[in-house]
Design a protein around this nucleic acid. Sequence first.
DNA 1: CCTGGCACTCTTCATATGCGAGTGCCAGCG
DNA 2: CGCTGGCACTCGCATATGAAGAGTGCCAGG
Lengths: 338, 338
Amino acid sequence: MLSERRLQVLRAIVQDYVGTEEPVGSKALTERHSLGVSPATIRNDMAALEDEGFIAQPHTSAGRIPTDKGYRLFVDKLAGVKPMTAPERRAIQNFLEGAVDLDDVVARTVRLLAQLTRQVAVVQYPSLTRSTVRHVELLSLAPARVMLVLITDTGRVEQRMVDCPAPFGEASLADLRARLNSRVAGRRFTDVPMLVEDLPDAFDPEDRGTVSMVLSTLLETLVEENEERLMIGGTANLTRFGHDFPLTIRPVLEALEEQVVLLKLLGEAKDPGVTVRIGHENAHEGLNSTSVVSVGYGSGGEAVAKLGVVGPTRMDYPGTMGAVRAVARYVGQILAES
Amino acid sequence: MLSERRLQVLRAIVQDYVGTEEPVGSKALTERHSLGVSPATIRNDMAALEDEGFIAQPHTSAGRIPTDKGYRLFVDKLAGVKPMTAPERRAIQNFLEGAVDLDDVVARTVRLLAQLTRQVAVVQYPSLTRSTVRHVELLSLAPARVMLVLITDTGRVEQRMVDCPAPFGEASLADLRARLNSRVAGRRFTDVPMLVEDLPDAFDPEDRGTVSMVLSTLLETLVEENEERLMIGGTANLTRFGHDFPLTIRPVLEALEEQVVLLKLLGEAKDPGVTVRIGHENAHEGLNSTSVVSVGYGSGGEAVAKLGVVGPTRMDYPGTMGAVRAVARYVGQILAES
DNA sequence: CCTGGCACTCTTCATATGCGAGTGCCAGCG
DNA sequence: CGCTGGCACTCGCATATGAAGAGTGCCAGG
């Protein structure tokens, strides 16, 4: 186990390195932090920390920088979450309150997060899995063509075209619309398949084909849309990443374009609070030199989606975690109100 | 006026520079292109071209590189549009045909363009201005709360919430829905205001407030959604930009995040064919070292939106223009079919 | 266990130097 | 008049060399 002072040293190293972006040496440490001991002592502590794998030196005779393991310890034991100041909170609230629809909420959230953290922001659209159906609308566009519109309680709208096997009258359509809504409106997506299972039986044989097709399209939509959408922003902040650009930034940009990768990344964080994945903890190679700070958010108590930021492992964790948490909280409020 | 050979020299310089990314000298030119004259002659031509401002040398005693003006001449007079090969066409078509809905079409188009051109792709969602209304749906969510759903002929769906000044019965709602659709279905957006102007008069006085409110929300939606959306992709290709990274790439990333900037950029191109804006021709500062190749696309003959790519001024113009044009063509087809 | 001192290692920066690419100009030739 | 070969010149780039500085590890003493 590491002594109390050694933890202090690690904390100081992380803080200084995050601030200056340069390897930090023993002398500088004693000058900037009142640790009450001499550089030589610090050197011993540093050697110990290095043995344990918490810090490393880029090249012999340079200062130390934290390793992923070092950041992990820092985040877990040494740093809290830095709460937002009152003015910051007000600014967040004001900015988000101006949103006019769901897309706008997400767009504003992305901008806000990117600006607050000066990093790349990622916001997942509210998930459908846990959402409920607000309304299903059916529109006849042609005798044998129906448009299906699904509206969720988060305000999301999805539409699909259905080509019917046989012409489908307005009366049947109205009937189906009414029956469908009375069964699924207000229900959870996961319950829908069960609820509509026997619906075709209520219709004339010649309409059953169409009804089944509409239903299967509806179910498809529910499943497909589980492949969440997300929005990213603040990629220009990547330019502050490091000096050795192209090699660092490219895989990150590539990873950010792979929505699948990002969704998996966000999805993996099961923690109820703020989750931090540091460097190599991220499965995707391109993100091995980045950390991902994410948190769930939702309109009620339940989290329906995730949001977070992607930045260099050398980031201000307490501040970033604070910003992410605060934004998630306010977005939740906004969603609950609308 | 420049002699024929000097134009040839300019063309050769552009081609070589685009290929190698290095300033091209007189000797290299004669070796790689059969111009039939000696390096010395080329040197004279180069001096002339430089006097006219078509080429420049980064530093004394280096080869020449084209200036924006040089690229302009190249694009206007010296280069055609390189058509896609048959396999490429097939690939484009196959890739786009898999799309299931409008979002998917746009997403696939972005990926495709980015891959084909190895540059940043920008695709504007089909515009509403020139679109027609397919259907307007009204849903009663609460006695005094109505959801308005607008469906366009391009398959786009927009929804808005309307808080009514007074409770609004199902019967009135159905009435309004029917009247509204009989008037606006199939009509152009721009005609809608005129068409619904006198609609409140047909209703009971106590319902008129609500009707007006629904109508004004509808009109707002039409206008607001004129602020087009767009999707970008392939930003990882920016890493191939140049060697002097951070300074070059940052303003570009920033510009790309300002959708307003991009929309203006695309909007400015009035040309019926492929439009190329080179370097400083782009109003936005951040894009002064990039060229934008764009073209309109649409389901019918009419262009309803733009798509294009953003890349370094040093790009393969004929190839890029060919790819952009081809993709636009096929997207138009896909949209017309659906 | 902490401290000051000391020798050692390595990176970084500046300066110097040679090389090569490419130019501009000129005199001569068709 | 235009093209050509030759030649001197300029400059950027890369490599080498050396001095400086930062930081370490270790050790002996308090």
